[in-house]
């Protein structure tokens, strides 16, 4: 009996994903939104590794690596945008103030 079964992995990943989702929805500060996105990505990565362990396939960890690359890019670009907005003299990091796409 493994210490941490695949069912438990899925359960944990679901909870983690929902927590991250709630974070994205509720926080207005863009830094917190990015962190919440990272939590969601981690939840997805956890499922991949769990599935890889369940079926003895290295592909799970390959996917984990790709998610890692994706997260790195996402964070880098996101933080660059935040820095850029800050450098342009925007007073807050409030995501709701950027609504130029308003219909």
């Amino acid at each position: 009996m493994p210490v941490f079964s695949f069912n438990d992995t899925l359960l944990l990943a679901t909870v983690l994903f929902s927590v991250g989702l709630a974070g994205v929805l509720v926080r207005r500060n863009m830094i917190f939104m990015l962190m919440s996105l990272d939590i969601m990505l981690n939840a997805a990565a956890l499922v991949f590794v769990g599935a890889g362990a369940r079926w003895h396939d290295a592909a799970g960890q390959v996917m984990f690596l790709l998610i890692l690359a994706l997260a790195a890019v996402e964070t880098a670009v996101g933080l660059a945008i935040i820095l850029c907005l800050h450098a342009r003299g925007r007073p807050t990091l409030d995501a709701d103030t950027g609504n130029l796409l308003q219909g």
Binding site: V3, L12, A45, V49, A53
Partner: peptide
């Protein structure tokens, strides 16, 4: 730590 328990020590190190 969870990843190590799942057998993915490489993934855990990367994490």
């Amino acid at each position: 730590a969870l990843l190590v328990m799942l057998g993915g020590s490489f993934a855990a190190m990367l994490e």
